[in-house]
Computed example of a mutant assay.
Amino acid sequence: MKRAKSKGHVYYYFDTGQTDDDGKRIWKRLPDPADKAFAATYAAMLGHRARRQNVVERLTVAKLIDLYQCSDKFSKMADSTKRLYRLYQAELVDKLGTAPAQLVERKDIVLLLDQMADRPGAANMVKRSGGAAYAWARKRGHVTNDPFFEIEEMDTGEHEPWPEAALQLCLTAEDDIVRLTVHLLYYTAQRIGDVAAMSWRDIRDDAIHITQKKTGKHLIIPLHQELRKELARHSRSLTTIIPGKPMESKNNRLRLAMQTICTEAGFKIVPHGLRKNAVNALLEAGCSSAETAAISGQSLQMVEHYAKRRSQKKLGLSAMEKWERT
């Protein structure tokens, strides 16, 4: 119970133990303690709260995940996102499925994720998909706890460039969003957040004008002919090139869509790896480090660092051709 004072009057409120759609705690007005109805009203509210709490504590993690996957919010996700969430939420259910959802604590999730330390990428997906389910459940009033609160994602190490087969798979994917996203990532050498924020109005004079969020650098990137062809397949609008608001949820949606297609084909990738593919492609094409940096927006030192993963085979062939010409 809490007491509030307004305009010289004191008011009393009861904590229902529930939250609204914005996650804010719901309080209900109580009669004044001097009022004869106070005791009966307080007892009734307390009884309702206790009954709700009992129901919540009997809701298992497995049932919570099942409810989430049957929800309208889940149904509106892209099919690729749903497949990936089901995959990693199944790991959460396998380890904690019978536990009361309301009683799961942060330390329980930390222990679970630490046991997956040899698979940091999978651990991060369990955190994201499980956290999404709990966030939905809190808004619906099914639980009030947040066992995923401020758990940092694991370091997955330095991102590797995509295998050539994975790159070609996504550049020719039937999924329009995946194909468009990969074309933009690869042919601009930018981060996924910057690509997600690109708008049609940023395309001027046959180039994309962007300001990198991380560095603040303004870049004018000429359109590669393959990117120009891909953009021509899509209708222009006053919004972003890739549909959806450029927020973290959009970045995750795009990331999951690409990873799902690649995972199903046996490839393990992260979107940021495409920056290495792009940098290496520019260098292998004979571009200088300065020319490459003008596209990627990186420092010359970072370009040289990325250059370590250039294809020795391609460079060897190029070197031999130049040698033979002399």
Rank of each mutant, 00 (worst) to 15 (best):
H272K: 00
G8I: 07
K76C: 10
H209W: 14
G193T: 03
L256W: 14
N54A: 14
L64K: 03
N145S: 10
D94W: 10
A62T: 03
V182E: 01
V178G: 02
L64H: 04
P163V: 05
T144D: 08
Q168W: 02
L256K: 11
S288Q: 06
A123D: 09
L180T: 00
M77L: 15
I241C: 05
D206H: 11
A197Y: 02
T81V: 12
T181C: 01
I192T: 00
N124V: 09
W162Q: 06
K82L: 11
R228D: 01
V195E: 01
R58N: 11
K95L: 05
V126G: 10
S235W: 07
L84Q: 12
G266L: 04
R204L: 08
Q259V: 13
K214I: 04
Y11S: 07
T172V: 00
R310F: 02
Q18K: 11
L254V: 05
R253G: 11
E152M: 06
M1E: 10
E160I: 07
E304G: 06
H209S: 07
C170D: 03
R309P: 01
K322Y: 05
K2T: 12
I241M: 04
R106L: 03
E158Y: 03
E304D: 09
A319S: 13
R228A: 08
S237H: 12
L185D: 00
V93F: 14
I241D: 04
E160D: 10
G273K: 02
A137P: 06
V93C: 13
D202M: 06
G131C: 06
T239G: 11
S80Y: 09
A285H: 03
M247T: 15
M247N: 15
Q115T: 13
H218L: 08
L59K: 05
W323S: 12
P163M: 00
G244L: 07
H183I: 07
T60W: 09
Y42C: 05
K313P: 01
A50Y: 09
V104D: 04
A34N: 05
D176Q: 11
G157D: 05
K76P: 06
R86C: 12
G193P: 01
R119L: 13
H9W: 07
K268T: 15
L227Q: 04
S311G: 04
E153K: 12
K313F: 08
R275A: 03
H159Q: 07
H48S: 13
K73V: 14
K322R: 14
M116T: 07
L87S: 15
C262M: 08
E158A: 10
Q69C: 14
K5G: 10
L180M: 10
K2L: 10
R179Y: 02
I192L: 11
A37I: 00
S129W: 08
C70L: 12
L167R: 08
F149V: 14
M77H: 12
G273N: 04
R138V: 09
G157F: 00
K5V: 13
M125N: 14
H183R: 02
R310S: 10
G316M: 09
T16W: 06
E248F: 13
G23F: 10
A39M: 02
R275V: 03
T211Y: 07
R49S: 02
